[in-house]
Every structure is written in structure tokens, then in C-alpha cells.
Nucleic acid binder design. Structure first.
Length: 512
RNA sequence: UCCUGAGUAGCUCAAUGGCAGAGCAUUCGGCUGUUAACCGAAGGGUUGUAGGUUCGAGUCCUACCUCAGGAGCCA
């Protein structure tokens, strides 16, 4: 076979008029008498081929006519622009080599028609090949990359905590337990937080990024037993700075996804305007605080209508104000004044902030107007319907801060203005997606932390090393954790987190 | 753990307690611009499992299994 340049389907527009070689799979096949329309996919996209009988060698026509779906092929053909094609291009097939033909007796089980959830999850290893699932995984990869990138370019050091842990962060009932040689037990981590508090006090600004495990018997569209979490932890950071860090973090991720994945989001069926609203500058703030042009262009590039993304200068406005040098090591007190650690103070994108009390008042009003069914009890945590209502009132993620200490984790710093409240924040994604980030300022006083551990009836011995952090140069510090799968579900507009990870682990499924 | 719902052809679903059905997929035939192509034909069933009620059960009852949606809990 004559050799031609090997191309990917995503790059075919650069090969118009050329004969190229594609390597991939037969995605679908339509026939109209002596005219075949095979659709090929290669992981980067799909393209329809045209095979008129008589225009190609007889064996090529016969091979393709009888080819089974998902058979692997190497195809040669000429790229031709065609207004009838969804992607704008078609392939005039000249030759085909079949690497492996799917046997007639065992056809590919995933069809273009509807399937049930159980069937699709049972065939997840094959379901991944469909365009929508592939698009979701590409967006997931960008979300993970841009999340890490935000911290990497802001002076954070990645310090991954252990996966195997000797004890729980917040109790052992929700942990996966395993034998650890002889008589010991080990548990799969449910959060690296306690460990990165230690590395934050060593390095200043740190983050961790890895899998976490929860043995909760939760059976909802928001829960996995194994999920990925990215957690920053910053010495000398207090609650206000933590809010700004999270705001810049989310803005950067959404901006990056919009820069690179408009086509994928369209395949997924996402309403892109909803994402543009998330990063749109607030009118009042933008008008009152003139910005360097580079920062403005970055936001308009993400927020405006489809501009030529390739010609847009690559600007990372949310990270420019802070140099990537490790300033926190040299001058850790930089952040002591409640200063934003990673975002410029002129950041035009402000997420709404509600105190727990304000959120409660909002729910009281909603209940009085009959907008929610059950009344929220002051002092209780918010339920799913509560979170859905609150987030539906805003087009941007909502930050709810200062929950009652009684319903929050033992390590959260009390608010000096009201010690019954904790200096914590939950960030709710819009459109009812609920909590994607939970964070707090941590208790830095030894005696207070010790009494909280005792009050929570946690084994003091297991936490001695954690208490040590308050014994040797303790400082205020804060951090948060974001569940990647919930962020992907929100950004892609999915109704279940099981589609956001290649192989979801849920209460009822650990296969394939 | 609790509440609710669903298990019938490879898939998605029908079927007053009375002959087990359709679309898609597969195979065969037709069609030179199809877009989940279309048209014709064929093959394809221990109705989740085990009991029970009944002349007769996919359908009603009991238990169990599996899955889904929700609650609680959380990211």
C-alpha cells in the first residue's frame, strides 16, 4: 500500500485535498445501493467516508460493505470539504486495511439507540468509545490539568499524602479497611487534609491531588466510593483569603475549559451560556476598577461569543498578579493581612458570598413563599433541596460561610466574632449541582484542638502527630478540597457523576 | 441504613388473570447522498430466582437477588 501522511480526524481540516491515512475504528455504516457511507472514529473525532461502487477496487467496496461495527481499520482517502457533512469534511475512501474484524456472532453491544444505565455501566469499557463519553473524558482531563496548573503557577508545591492511613480524619465508619501485615489495620484515605496541613507548615503553600475513598452507603447521583480530590492548604491563610483562592481557582478552570472544549461541550449537549455566565465580570466591579488590557481580554475571550480561540493570546489573568516564585517560603507573612494569596484584588469576577445566617433567611423566605417544601431549621445543615434552591438563585457558584460549629468537622477554627460559628465555606455549583468545594480555616491553638478531638471522641493517640503541628510554630492556616467528579458533572452539565470518571466505583458496582 | 420504583428477545419497551409482541441490533435481499438512513424478509424467549393462590400467572401473594431514583451523610 502506498504510504500517505498519517492524520487524526481532529486535524483533517489541515489536510484538505490531500490523501491521508487514518487509523481507527468503524463507528457506523450506512449503505445506499452501490454507495457506502462508513463513519470512522479515531479517538479525536468522527468522519464520514464515501465509497461509490466502481470508484474503488471491488475488494475495497466488498470489505467495507460487510464490515462490522467497531472493527479496527487503517483507511486511506482524500479529504474533501463538503457542506453536507456535520464537521465540514468527508473522506473519499481509496483503500482500507482491516486489522481486526468484529465477528458476526458477537456484534458490538453498544448501538446508537438508547440503552439503560445498568447495561451501559456493565459495558463501560466499550461505552467509553462513544463520542459523548470520549468528550466528557477530554473535558475531565482539562479540568484536572487546569486545576493543578492554577496551583503550580501560583507558588504551590504539590505534596501528595499517603493513600494508606492508620486512622480516620473524621471517624472510621466511612472508611475502607484492610489488613496491614500482622495485626495492624490500614484504611484508604478519605482526605489528605491532615497530612497537607503538615506539609503546608513545612513549605508554605501546598496542594495534593489524588484518589480518595469513602465507604459511605450513599446511593445518589453525586456520590462515588472512589473519587479524585484536589486540596490546597496554605500557611498564614485565613477564611477571607481562602474564599478568594477558591474563586480564582474555579474561574481559571471554567475559563480554560471554555477556551479548549467548545466542540466537546456541544457534543455533550452543555448549555455553554451557563458557563460563560460563571466567569462573566460583574458590571459594577468591572466599571469601577479599570484592568490591564491583558486581563480584560482573557475574560472576554472566555465570556464572549465564539471568537477565534486559536488567534487569542494565551493569557492566564488569574495567575499574573502573583509571581511563580515561592514567596510564601521567603515571606510567609505576606498573607497575614487577609490578602488574596493567588488572585488579584481587582479580579472582576466575584462569586456571591452568603453567611450561613443569610442563607437560612433566604430559605425562610422561600418556604414562606411556598418555593420549597420543607422548612429549614436554624442550626441544621442544608439538605439537597435547600442547596438546590440557594444555588438556583445565582448564575455563579455560591459561597456559604460560617456554618454552626456543631455541624462541622472538629478541626475548624471558631469565628472570633461568634464562637458558635466555624470559619468554613461550602461552595455550591449553580443549576442545583450542589457542593463542589468544602473548606475551612483550621484550628491552630493546641489546647482548643485537643479539646475538640476529645469532645469528638476520637482516639487522641492517633492524632498526636497532628497536635504536634500546633506545638511547634503553629500559625493560622486554611485549605479546601474540590471533588473533581462533581466539578466535571457541573461543567459538563451531566446528571450523574458516574459518567465523569473512566470507571466509576459506586455502592453497587465494582465491575468492570 | 431507610423510603419508592423496576426486572419480558442482544438492546429499549408493550401485553383486562386467558395464543409471548413491536422497534432497534444481527443475517439475507433492494436502493448512487445517506445523517440514530430507508424499504422487504428471516432467525431470535425457562418473562430475575424460589415457593404459593388459581381451571389457567409475565400479570395476584410471600421471600430472596439485582438495578435505579430519593433521604441521611458528604466532595
Amino acid at each position: 500500500m502506498q504510504t500517505h501522511p498519517i492524520a487524526t480526524i481532529a486535524s483533517l481540516s489541515a489536510h484538505e485535498g490531500q490523501t491521508v491515512t487514518l487509523r481507527g475504528w468503524l463507528y457506523n455504516l450506512r449503505a445506499s445501493g452501490k454507495l457506502l457511507f462508513p463513519i470512522f472514529r479515531d479517538g479525536t473525532g468522527t468522519i464520514q467516508g464515501i465509497v461509490p461502487k466502481g470508484a474503488v477496487p471491488e475488494e475495497v467496496f466488498e470489505t467495507l460493505k460487510n464490515l462490522t461495527l467497531e472493527s479496527s481499520v487503517i483507511v486511506t482517502g482524500k479529504v474533501r470539504a463538503d457542506s453536507r457533512a456535520p464537521s465540514g469534511f468527508e473522506l473519499d475512501v481509496e483503500g482500507v486495511e482491516v486489522l481486526q474484524r468484529v465477528p458476526d456472532e458477537t456484534p458490538f453491544p453498544i448501538t446508537l439507540k438508547e440503552h439503560g444505565v445498568d447495561f451501559l455501566m456493565e459495558h463501560r469499557h466499550l461505552w467509553l468509545r462513544t463520542p459523548r463519553q470520549s468528550a466528557i473524558l477530554r473535558v475531565r482531563a482539562t479540568i484536572m490539568r487546569s486545576a493543578a496548573e492554577y496551583f503550580d503557577t501560583n507558588g504551590f508545591i504539590r505534596t501528595d499524602p499517603p493513600i494508606l492511613t492508620p486512622n480516620a480524619c473524621e471517624g472510621t465508619s466511612e472508611l475502607f479497611e484492610m489488613d496491614y501485615f500482622d495485626d495492624d489495620k490500614a484504611y484508604l484515605t478519605q482526605s489528605g487534609q491532615l497530612y497537607i496541613e503538615a506539609t503546608a507548615l513545612a513549605l508554605g503553600k501546598v496542594y495534593s491531588f489524588g484518589p480518595t475513598f469513602r465507604a459511605e452507603k450513599s446511593k445518589t447521583r453525586r456520590h462515588l466510593t472512589e473519587f479524585w480530590m484536589i486540596e490546597p492548604e496554605v500557611a498564614f491563610l485565613e477564611l477571607d483569603g481562602l474564599l478568594e483562592l477558591a474563586e480564582g481557582f474555579i474561574t481559571h478552570i471554567v475559563t480554560t475549559v471554555l477556551e479548549h472544549h467548545r466542540a466537546d461541550l456541544k457534543v455533550i449537549g452543555r448549555d455553554i451560556a451557563k458557563l460563560e455566565a460563571v466567569i462573566a465580570p460583574e458590571q459594577t466591579t468591572a466599571a469601577s476598577a479599570p484592568l490591564p488590557s491583558s486581563q480584560v481580554s482573557s475574560f472576554t475571550a472566555g465570556g464572549g461569543p465564539a471568537v477565534g480561540a486559536t488567534t487569542e493570546p494565551k493569557v492566564r489573568s488569574t495567575t499574573e498578579a502573583v509571581s511563580p516564585t515561592s514567596e510564601s517560603l521567603a515571606e510567609p507573612t505576606l498573607l497575614a493581612q487577609g490578602e488574596a494569596p493567588a488572585t488579584p484584588s481587582t479580579l472582576p469576577n466575584r462569586f456571591p458570598r452568603l453567611s450561613y445566617e443569610e442563607a437560612h433567611t433566604m430559605l425562610e423566605d422561600a418556604f414562606a413563599k411556598g418555593l420549597i417544601e420543607t422548612r429549614h431549621k436554624d442550626g441544621d445543615d442544608f439538605g439537597s433541596p435547600d442547596e438546590t434552591y440557594i444555588s438556583s438563585q445565582f448564575s455563579k457558584p455560591v459561597m456559604i460561610h460560617r456554618y454552626p460549629s456543631a455541624i462541622k468537622a472538629f478541626y475548624m477554627q471558631p469565628d472570633p466574632l461568634d464562637p458558635t460559628k466555624a470559619l468554613c465555606v461550602d461552595i455550591l455549583a449553580p443549576e442545583g449541582y450542589g457542593e463542589i468545594i468544602g473548606g475551612s480555616q483550621r484550628i491552630h491553638d493546641y489546647d482548643l484542638l485537643k479539646s475538640r478531638i476529645e469532645h469528638a471522641e476520637l482516639p487522641l493517640a492517633s492524632f498526636q502527630w497532628y497536635l504536634d503541628l500546633r506545638k511547634y510554630g503553629s500559625v493560622p492556616h486554611a485549605g479546601f478540597g474540590m471533588g473533581i467528579e462533581r466539578a466535571v458533572a457541573w461543567i459538563c452539565g451531566l446528571d450523574h457523576v458516574r459518567e465523569t470518571i473512566p470507571f466509576a466505583r459506586t455502592l453497587n458496582r465494582i465491575y468492570p
